[in-house]
């Protein structure tokens, strides 16, 4: 289980991307993180496996504190977290198989990695995973020959091959058409259920979040402003997340809510979000 406590990130420029966010992800649940652009969703996910260095707080995976690790220990911790990227981040000029097998790089020696020599088990499993994501027979295609939806499935296959304890998914659908988006989301939730691992997804399409997630977390200005089931996400909650509205006194059911930013502060951003 992933347990994040009071995570903070302040960039050298002084921008506060995360102002103390806490979140637990357990079992095989799918947690969707929504919020306007710039709310800190990507920063949060990237701080979990420390592609971005958090400036405060703690991240624990199955009791192991991630934030203090370095070198070999950090790499071993990263092996347990599969990450899927918005722009797929495949090695475009390598074959699909090499991309999938690169999920095992944390386990092979550098020399074997150079010779593309992976264990037979890994290769067998790579074939299985490729079948599972619907790309059987594509192993010798180069990644740049595939369509967007196919590439994202290669990205998922690479992450599963790590046998991760959690999947971190950063905007998996924003470069895809609606149909491919659904296929990718179906696949992710299916894997979570079958492999019994939790999935933490950043997503900006609220309808997809409501449809696929077991729990939704709303982020605004680096703070958690909403947490609850898809049914709790009513107009008031959306108002808080996307327009920074104060909770009206005695309004309908909302999730467990932290304090939201003051309306005055966010009036400028509000306009930007509406335009976007």
């Amino acid at each position: 289980m992933l347990s994040v406590t009071d995570l903070q990130k302040t960039y050298p420029s002084g921008d506060e991307a995360l102002k103390g966010v806490s979140l637990d992800v357990t079992g095989s649940e799918t947690v969707a993180m929504i919020g306007p652009s710039g709310a800190g969703k990507s920063t949060f996910i990237r701080c979990v496996n420390r592609l971005t260095e958090p400036t405060g707080g703690s991240v624990e995976l199955d009791g192991l504190e991630i934030t203090g690790l370095s070198g070999k220990e950090l790499r071993n911790a990263r092996r347990d977290m599969g990450m899927i990227f918005q722009e797929y981040n495949l090695i475009e000029r390598l074959t699909v198989m090499e991309n999938v097998l690169s999920g095992r790089l944390g386990y092979v020696s550098t020399w074997d990695a150079f010779r593309r020599k992976f264990a037979g088990d890994d290769i067998e499993r790579a074939y299985e995973v490729l079948d599972r994501v619907g790309l059987g027979g594509h192993e010798n295609n180069r990644a740049d020959e595939l369509s967007g939806g196919q590439r994202q499935r290669v990205g998922i296959a690479r992450a599963i091959l790590q046998r991760p304890k959690i999947l971190l998914v950063d905007e998996p659908t924003s470069s895809l058409d609606p149909e491919s988006s659904r296929a990718v989301m179906d696949l992710l939730t299916e894997i979570a259920a079958e492999d019994d691992i939790p999935v933490l997804i950043n997503i900006h399409e609220v309808d997809l979040a409501e449809e696929y997630a077991g729990r939704i977390v709303g982020l605004r200005d680096g703070q958690k402003v909403f947490e609850g089931g898809p049914d709790d996400l009513d107009e008031t909650a959306r108002g808080q997340i996307y327009r920074g509205e104060e909770i009206p006194e005695g309004a309908g059911p909302t999730g467990k809510v932290a304090e939201a930013g003051t309306p005055g502060e966010s009036s400028q951003e509000e306009g930007q979000i509406r335009r976007g």
Partner: peptide
């Protein structure tokens, strides 16, 4: 594209492997 290097780092590869891939 730095994203490709990042993706390899995210799998737990060391920096030489990240350069090779």
């Amino acid at each position: 594209d730095p994203g490709q290097v990042e993706a390899i780092q995210a799998t737990g590869a060391n920096s030489i492997e990240a350069a090779i891939y």
